[in-house]
Design a protein around this nucleic acid. Sequence first.
DNA 1: TGTACATCAGTGAACGCGCGTTCACTGATGTAC
DNA 2: TGTACATCAGTGAACGCGCGTTCACTGATGTAC
Lengths: 200, 200
Amino acid sequence: MEKPAYHHGNLKQVLLEEALKFIETDGIKALSLRKVAKQAGVSPGAPYHHFKNKDELIAGLAVRSLEKLDATSEAAAQGQISPQEKLKAVGKAYILYAVENPEQFRLVFSSEQSGSFLSQPPNEAPLFRVLYKVIEELEAIGLVSNVQVAAITAWGLVHGVATLLIDGPLQPMSTDLEQVNALVEEVTSGLIYVQAAPKR
Amino acid sequence: MEKPAYHHGNLKQVLLEEALKFIETDGIKALSLRKVAKQAGVSPGAPYHHFKNKDELIAGLAVRSLEKLDATSEAAAQGQISPQEKLKAVGKAYILYAVENPEQFRLVFSSEQSGSFLSQPPNEAPLFRVLYKVIEELEAIGLVSNVQVAAITAWGLVHGVATLLIDGPLQPMSTDLEQVNALVEEVTSGLIYVQAAPKR
DNA sequence: TGTACATCAGTGAACGCGCGTTCACTGATGTAC
DNA sequence: TGTACATCAGTGAACGCGCGTTCACTGATGTAC
């Protein structure tokens, strides 16, 4: 760490981690490649051996965050048996992830990136995939008629509450985890009824 | 417009309008005071007679956008008679505003700003106020038990769908207004059932 | 096991750029008498 | 109505800054024989 090490061996990972730290501390606007390089103990040119440019590093970060959020939701669903419980668990996991990692959550949905990730069919697209499967289970037991609409509605509710908590008027509440939990509990309890509705 | 006009008379408004145009074209990241000044036909120093700095101009823009969104929602509610119809109308107006003015919508909820605007009580806070009143009407006729939770749920759903449409995986759909309208129709139809749920 | 050499992943100086903001100035407008 | 003067709202040159990115370079690593 003292002398210039011409082969760091692990630099790409370190750069991604340091970049994430910056974003989480000061927001994405404050991110600069130079600062990241410096923090990693490396010269300003070094990152260019691992990323084409700044945007590519950010994109890498967004992908990682998306995967984490997706995995968290998936795990939450698998921890439950009935589809009703699964739905609730996914909703809770999603909102809590957002509250606990607001900058990562924003990153995932920052408009440069996100348009791409539902170009895939609904049972393959990250995030949507998890929810979609649960809603299909609800359909199978007659609690949902229109899977597409129900999935979008459920996702919308959960996503909206998450967003209001981190970027909106509910922000002040988001520092009080107990209060957040209570709210999330209430909202996700209602989730199942949203699905029951459009039986026309 | 040819000679230097030492008293423009209307510069503040013009600056705000030009700034908004830039944001709507290229996003907020591309906004610079110098470009705005140039577009307004004025020297780089001129804006400083009207705004303390760049952030203050942006804040001004956010306030204006918030007021427009608020007024739009309010008007939508007043166009209807039954609280059920009001709720649906507000939801539609909200989502459509977001789809039609995505950058303004983002501006309102950009995290620098928005924490502030629910420091006020719920029947005074912009946006929330409109929704809150409608939900109270629903409570009065027995369709809602917990006003607070119902209001947050309803807002969450509508806000989430709006966000998914402009920044998320539903983005591709947002260019097709007909499709958007169909979705909004479906989702806001479900809205009323969300409220009926938490009667415990 | 040793040597020649290609490739990889660093260095650090340098580039140009656009930005926010300041400042001394100036001309137009409004006000007091 | 005219004059003196304060204030207002522009100008445009200049400041320093941090940034993304490039480039010639260098030392370490991996590979072929």
